[in-house]
Amino acid sequence: MKKARGKVASRGPAAKKRPGRAASSKSAAKSTAKSGSKTARLNKTIPSKRKRKPAAAPLAKVRRQVSALKTELAAAQARSDELQAWADTDFLLDIYNRRGFERELDRSLAYMRRYKATGALVVLDVDRLKPINDTFGHAAGDAVLKGVVAVLMRHVRSSDVVGRLGGDEFGLLLWNLTEVDALAKAAALEEAIDRLTFVFKGHSVVAGASTGTAPIDAATDAASVMEAADRAMYARKTLRRDRAHLAL
Rank of each mutant, 00 (worst) to 15 (best):
Q84V: 11
A209L: 01
T178F: 11
D106Q: 12
V149F: 12
L196A: 01
E82A: 14
A218C: 09
R11E: 07
R154V: 08
L42T: 07
G208I: 00
S158W: 03
R21T: 10
A214T: 04
G166H: 10
R231P: 00
V126K: 07
A87V: 04
P215K: 06
V123K: 02
R128P: 06
V144F: 09
F91C: 05
D127Y: 05
P58E: 09
E169H: 13
K61M: 08
R21M: 12
K201E: 14
G137N: 03
F101G: 03
K17Q: 03
P54C: 03
R63V: 12
S204A: 14
Q77N: 09
R157Q: 06
A247R: 06
T197L: 14
T211Y: 09
G100K: 11
K70E: 13
L196P: 00
T71V: 13
R11W: 12
P47K: 01
T197A: 15
P54H: 10
M112S: 06
E82Q: 15
R98L: 01
S204W: 13
R114K: 10
K49R: 07
N97C: 04
E179T: 08
S35F: 08
S210F: 12
V151I: 09
N43H: 15
L93Q: 12
Y96M: 06
V144K: 08
I132P: 01
Y111V: 15
V123E: 01
A76D: 07
E102D: 08
V149M: 00
L165A: 10
T118D: 10
A244F: 08
A57E: 04
L42V: 05
A68P: 10
R63Y: 10
Q84C: 06
G212Q: 04
A188D: 10
I216P: 08
I193T: 03
V161E: 01
F200K: 00
P54N: 13
G171E: 04
R63G: 12
N97R: 02
T211K: 01
S204D: 08
E227W: 05
V206F: 15
A14L: 13
S210Q: 05
A209G: 04
R195K: 11
A214D: 08
D94F: 09
F136M: 05
